[in-house]
Design a protein around this nucleic acid. Structure first.
Length: 221
DNA sequence: TATTGATCATGC
DNA sequence: GCATGATCAATA
């Protein structure tokens, strides 16, 4: 396994490539219907950088503790989408605090790879940007912790897991399932089971935008 | 048009 | 079914 610096160097070397060019170099065919290939760009970058976890519940680079995330940015550097972090299960949140939470561990070290995005762009037109190796600063971590605690409490308290996506300043809980009617077994604080809609933590787009803005102040490229 | 809820593909 | 990777698309 290589070091963090080597990972960043490899990611830097991809900047300027388009998604189509990178796919061609890796001999990976482009999806015929891009609108149905939601995870394609993320998997392509995993492949390009040698991530090992695949679909296993691990960091993408276990030896480094680094999580790889692609993020669609528009021409102004604004994130176009929220960022999936991890599933939220009531029983796991019950005995957990922020320090030991999966959200904190997932976000402890993230290699962000911006990908040009705006409606109508093809894979040939979507270029890879300059990567950012990030850990939350004190202010960012405080925002995340406050939201995580609020959302966790709300999820645990909610009888049917009725926390909506409008709660949370930088972090939110949203449904995450193949279909809207999917329900999964959850246990509450007293150990009672119930069926609830699976939910996951997401980073709100403005927060992700601010990560790049802070790292790339006005005037920087 | 930004946000929230829903969905698509893949590998066990 | 669940966790990985996200983006689509209806709604507010």
């Amino acid at each position: 396994m290589f070091a963090e610096g080597e990972l960043l160097r490899r990611a830097d070397a991809l900047a300027g490539w388009s998604i189509a060019e990178l796919a061609a170099r890796l001999q990976i065919p482009l999806p015929e219907r891009p609108e149905r290939a939601k995870g394609f760009v993320g998997r392509l970058l995993e492949e390009a950088l040698g991530a090992t976890a695949g679909s296993r519940p691990e960091a993408d680079f276990p030896a480094l503790g680094v999580e790889l995330k692609t993020i669609p940015l528009d021409s102004q550097g604004k994130a176009r989408e929220s960022t999936f972090v991890t599933y939220a299960s009531v029983d796991e949140l019950c005995g957990s605090d922020w320090e030991s939470s999966r959200v904190r561990h997932k976000l402890a070290r993230v290699l962000w790879i911006p990908i040009e995005a705006r409606p109508g762009l093809t894979f040939s037109e979507r270029r890879i940007g300059i990567p950012l190796l990030w850990s939350p600063n004190a202010a960012q971590e405080e925002l995340l912790r406050a939201d995580w605690e609020r959302l966790s409490e709300a999820l645990i308290a909610g009888e049917a897991g009725d926390v909506r996506g409008n709660v949370g300043q930088v972090l939110q809980l949203r449904p995450k399932a193949a279909r809207a009617e999917v329900r999964s077994l959850q246990w509450d604080a007293e150990g009672f089971a119930s069926l609830a809609q699976p939910k996951a933590f997401y980073l709100r787009a403005p927060f992700t935008t601010s990560i790049f803005a802070a790292a790339n102040p006005i005037g920087g490229q």
